[in-house]
């Protein structure tokens, strides 16, 4: 709202402000509850959760729905009580940048291509693409159908869309972030594909795929762990859990979950 208020007066600005105000109003109204529509992939997600034991005690707790604001998300499958555990993601399905160390020769190849300066989010993006490319029948390749083709990140905006926010700090930040990501990709590829052709087939690690994976991390990564030790914190991708309010436009009037 603050960024939008600072934009120059225009029809777009007024429309954006009205949409944001309406969204805020819905959060404040008790009768503004959006129960969403059935999602076409609801059965597939149910099967995924059952197959990978994501529901505690085998009881169905969540259902995939399509919400008017925020799109695809998770709803309670039945009345749930405070304290109920609704989702448990096993360690084998969690993806963090540490997964990269399980590939022989990758640490050396990464270091040769990009030094030790790679951001953890870039490393996690690589881990995601590797996981999908490595095992076509694996859980992450299977889970891809629930991930958006175009995650809601400003990095995907066309310059025409960015220009609507001209005169805000956002334009410079988005441009710089895209440029830094392009440089990271250019440092890694084709170097990694030449060094480890079996692991990095070029088609699976194009700029387009790389940007997609990075924006998945950006919009769906969860920062977990660490406790009192910030250096022990890490970003993980957790299937199904990432559907809990992934969208920046989702209503937040129901703050009901914590990660433990």
């Amino acid at each position: 709202l603050r960024l939008c208020s600072k934009a120059p007066h225009s029809a777009t600005r007024e429309a954006n402000l009205a949409a944001l105000a309406a969204s805020r109003q819905r959060l404040l109204q008790a009768d503004g509850e959006d129960l969403g529509q059935e999602d076409e992939l609801a059965d597939e997600l149910r099967a995924f959760c059952a197959r990978h034991a994501l529901w505690p005690h085998g009881t169905e707790t969540l259902v995939l729905r399509h919400f008017r604001v925020g799109g695809r998300g998770l709803a309670a499958a039945a009345d749930l009580s405070a304290g109920d555990t609704v989702l448990a993601v096993p360690e084998s399905l969690l993806l963090s940048s540490e997964r990269l160390s399980s590939y022989d020769g990758l640490a050396a190849a990464l270091s040769a291509a990009a030094g030790d300066s790679l951001h953890d989010d870039v490393r996690l993006s690589l881990a995601l693409l590797l996981e999908i490319a490595r095992d076509q029948a694996g859980a992450w390749a299977e889970y891809c159908r629930f991930l958006p083709e175009r995650p809601p990140s400003a990095l995907h905006w066309a310059s025409r869309q960015l220009q609507r926010l001209a005169h805000t700090p956002l334009v410079g930040r988005v441009t710089a972030a895209r440029e830094a990501l392009r440089e990271a990709h250019a440092a890694l590829f084709p170097a990694l594909s030449l060094a480890l052709p079996q692991l990095f087939p070029p088609a699976s690690f194009s700029w387009r795929r790389f940007l997609w994976a990075y924006t998945v991390v950006q919009t769906r990564g969860l920062v977990v762990g660490g406790g009192a030790e910030p250096r022990a914190r890490r970003t993980v991708l957790a299937p199904v859990a990432d559907l809990l309010n992934y969208s920046p436009t989702s209503p937040l009037a129901w703050p009901s979950l914590e990660a433990a």
Partner: peptide, 22 residues
Amino acid sequence: TLALTFRLLSAVPAGRQLCLYY
């Protein structure tokens, strides 16, 4: 181990969307 469990902070009626609380 790094398994993640998600627990409700408040009751949620059937059909209502769930959100992570940061």
